[in-house]
Design a protein around this nucleic acid. Structure first.
Lengths: 325, 325
DNA sequence: TTGTAAGCGTTATCAT
DNA sequence: ATGATAACGCTTACAA
């Protein structure tokens, strides 16, 4: 490996001069500059970031901790993060929790050992893992962001889509399509989260009515269990709070020869590729995944630079209308 | 930050003893061990991996360089890589080329600066970028793997799915379904790659016949341009060499009221979520993306450990039959 | 404008 | 079994 010392010797200047010339924009005699440049080229010098990191006691590595990367939901956010970090010359580590046989504590420990510059925690909005760990992380002055959750503010930077608004927009959209008997379908979401959706529905319907709530349980057969339930209640519009379930329900409805959107409108929460691929193409409420990633990264960078920033960012969802409503 | 020095002072032993106790499994007096353990706990020491890396002149960071992460094709491979690296306590860097405003040279430079332990290059099989850079990387003794390409062996570790076999399996499958007028649909694949597919077709048909080759051009309307072409040639089975295109073509066929698979069987190359979501669900040739990732990571680790390994790994595709054939 | 030297946290060599 | 110390490559007072 070619070091500063090597080019110092080769160029007949001190390492200090070269270091200054390379790092700061400090003035150097033309002659010295030429000598240095020649030496760098001739010996093929490349700077050693690890040594720099040790000296400065900081790295340019930001970690994203998520359940798994092979999921469009997470990978879209990650891509947003990657974009911003790249622009600012930070590197991106990925840790897949579902894939790593490490406990939460071990992963957090890893962050400290590696002098990680900042951490983005990503999870489903019903997930509460790592919640306590974040306080540890912050107490060690590691910038952190908890992204895509919807939990009460608890002293750490938070970022999530406005689910009440999402619900309101969704319900309004269904209503505007002449659907008046609306059901919300979800995969075992916790009650406090469902409350957000119920609130949104009330705002949309200008009433105190509650939508029919239908829970999809693990291994349930939609055509046998869910659709009869829908029909029995004369439902004419469903808002499915999980994109994948929306796709499956749509498939089941088509199999049951129920016309979409005439007899049943289907609205999905989340707008990845799969909503577009589904037949019919699904209308959906876009939760802005990429933007969520972008903002997360920006919040991390603000913290690193000790700039002011809003500790809680709430993103506005919007409707994307396609064929299913 | 609590350092070895700090706990040395606190425990009244030398840094050398602690370092040895922590890193090697060298014997220490019971009394010393207790003193050290107590000091570590009381001061909250965590080891500094950056300092270790500088000392040892090696990191535990492996980089994956890919076009973009928000694509099931790449994220599935990446997840496989992540799984293996995690098991061996390596960290995973991700660099999205499409997202990073860096030239190939700059990215490679970055790898050197950061003392990356190994690099997995991932790309579409029609892509040839980074091909030359790999020789540079290897000349600097950075372990590297070129994954998911199908290019002639050129002195660097290679890993790809057997496309000729994939073609053969696909053609055999369509033939076995009674389809005799078969077309291959692709998105502007280069000729040398198409040759593999043509070879596979010949092997399947035990003849020297060539399948009808149809090229999808940027912005082409499948219903208007592609399907009439198919019909004109009495095609009754298509093998689409790109999963996304297979989905789109299927949609277009359904719109044109062509019955799948009765009037037209559709087979897709690649087996991600989207083939399952498509209506009808697509039969496909699975290229083993996750396994490709797993093997890539293993090849990197072998190189790092200077173990023997096969420089070229070819993975066997297999048929997954669903509703479209 | 340039050089000298100490030090970032760790490990390894050589003594003791 | 343990300690003193140099070194990994780089930066930065301080001096010249």
């Amino acid at each position: 490996m070619v070091t500063l010392k090597d080019i110092a010797k080769h160029a007949n200047v001190s390492t200090a001069t070269i270091s200054r010339y390379l790092s700061s924009n400090i003035v150097v005699k033309k002659e010295t500059e030429e000598k240095i440049q020649r030496a760098i080229k001739e010996l093929g010098y490349v700077t050693n970031v690890v040594a720099k990191s040790l000296k400065h006691m900081e790295t340019f590595n930001v970690a994203v901790i998520l359940p798994k990367i092979n999921n469009l939901y997470y990978s879209e956010m990650t891509s947003g993060i990657s974009q911003i970090l790249g622009q600012h010359h930070y590197n991106l580590y990925i840790y897949e929790v579902d894939n790593l046989n490490l406990s939460e504590i071990e992963i957090i420990q890893l962050m400290r050992e590696n002098m990680i510059a900042g951490i983005v925690f990503i999870g489903l909005f019903s997930d509460r893992s790592f919640k306590d760990s974040i306080h540890d992380v912050m107490s060690w002055n590691i910038p952190a962001v908890y992204a895509n959750r919807c939990i009460p503010y608890d002293g750490f930077p938070l970022l999530y889509p406005d689910l009440t608004k999402a619900s309101q927009l969704g319900a309004e959209h269904l209503l505007s399509k002449g659907k008046h008997k609306i059901a919300y379908v979800h995969n075992q979401l916790p009650d406090d989260l469902l409350d957000h959706f119920i609130d949104g529905f009330k705002q949309a319907s200008h009433s105190d009515d509650t939508p029919t709530m239908i829970e999809i349980k693990e291994g349930m057969d939609l055509a046998k269990d869910c659709i009869p339930h829908l029909l029995r209640n004369d439902i004419d519009g469903v808002f499915v709070l999980n994109e994948m379930s929306a796709v499956h329900l749509t498939k089941a409805l088509v199999d049951c020869q129920i016309s979409i959107p005439k007899d049943m409108a289907v609205l999905s929460l989340g707008n990845s590729l799969i909503s577009q691929i589904s037949t019919p193409e699904l209308s959906c409420v876009d939760l802005q995944n990429r933007e969520l990633g972008i903002r997360s990264a920006e919040m991390i960078l603000s913290q690193i630079r000790k700039e002011a920033f809003a500790p809680v960012t709430v993103l506005e969802p919007f409707i994307v209308e396609r064929k299913s409503t």
